[in-house]
Amino acid sequence: MRAQSRALSNPVALWWAMLTLVSLANIVFWFILYRELNGGVAVSPSSDTSAMLALSAAYVFGCAFRSVLPRADVQRICLVDSWLSSVFVGRTVATIAEIAFAAQWAIILAQLGAIADAETAINMARVIVPIIVVAEICSWYAVVTKNFLYNAIENSLWAVAFLFVGIGLGRLLPEFDGLVRGLLIAGLIGIACYLAFLVVVDVPMYVKRWRIERAAGKPLLHPLVGLRDSATQWTVTHEFEHWKEEIAWMSLYFSAAVWGSLALCALSAMNDHGPQARAQTVAPSAIVQSATPR
């Protein structure tokens, strides 16, 4: 009983339980969405919708895996003593999931940009995935060398990528009305909050860690040595002190970001209604023009 009481009072255990429950709910929502978009009468699945569902599955299930088996990459800490908790496995899952998430944003910008004939959105769509691929390379380099500076660069690149996403959404905003416009506004608000978090919290955290490690003269690993280390070395800890700086970003990442992935699937499925949604916006001006004496 005392052991159970200590576990329940441990903030890390409570946080872990919350992550697991949210991830299970996200998986349920994905299956509901899959059934509605593939089996519903109202929506006929397009190739883009199918691709979005597949990409979302990679992200939803990847985040669920990382929620059940949390770890901090450079520190080599985890909550479960298993090879599945190794940084190598977790980082591989994360890489696939994050590129899939970036691809979702690229697809939605390209879709809506084509409907609205918005070249800015289409151009933004073209650069998002390449930027995130570079960010993933930086992340891997940080992992294998234990150099926090590359984590800072990685997250800075995420900020650049989502700044471009925000520019694309902002360009699309006046072109749409109704539910699509509401989703675009929600996306812009979410991106603004995400960018603020990266600039104020996340990137400075990694820069601070890098400076502390450098001041302490801690040696970096050779990439090949670090690659093996990432697959074989991990430390199990449930101490709040070890996890306190990870809790904020992981909580947002495995909840709000996943909800964004699911929302992108729904928005993609609405692409057949995009022209109508846009027409609702431009129709009043057309009526005024036709009523104006010439």
Rank of each mutant, 00 (worst) to 15 (best):
G260H: 04
W105D: 03
I27W: 06
R294Q: 13
T237S: 07
I32F: 08
I122S: 06
L84K: 07
D272E: 09
S50T: 14
I247R: 02
V93G: 04
Y194P: 10
A42K: 12
N123Q: 13
E241P: 00
L195Q: 08
F61V: 14
E213G: 00
D81S: 09
S86E: 05
L163M: 15
W30M: 03
N147V: 06
A216E: 08
T120C: 09
L221S: 10
V180T: 11
A94T: 15
D81R: 03
L19V: 07
L8D: 07
L55Y: 05
D117Q: 07
S139F: 04
A216T: 09
A283Y: 12
I115R: 04
S44G: 12
V199M: 11
R171S: 13
I185D: 05
R294C: 14
A106W: 00
V87M: 15
V201E: 13
A142T: 03
L262T: 03
C78V: 15
A215P: 12
A97I: 12
G113W: 00
C78K: 01
G190H: 01
Y206E: 06
K244D: 09
A42P: 05
A13E: 04
N155R: 11
F31Q: 07
V43N: 03
H238I: 09
A94H: 14
F164W: 11
A248L: 14
E213L: 07
P204C: 04
H242C: 11
S156N: 07
L220Q: 12
V133M: 09
A100Q: 01
G187M: 03
Y253K: 14
E246P: 08
E36V: 11
T232D: 07
G168V: 08
L179T: 08
Y253I: 12
Y34K: 12
I185N: 03
I185H: 07
F61Y: 08
R91K: 15
V43S: 06
V60P: 02
T95F: 04
L264Y: 00
I191A: 04
A110S: 08
S46K: 01
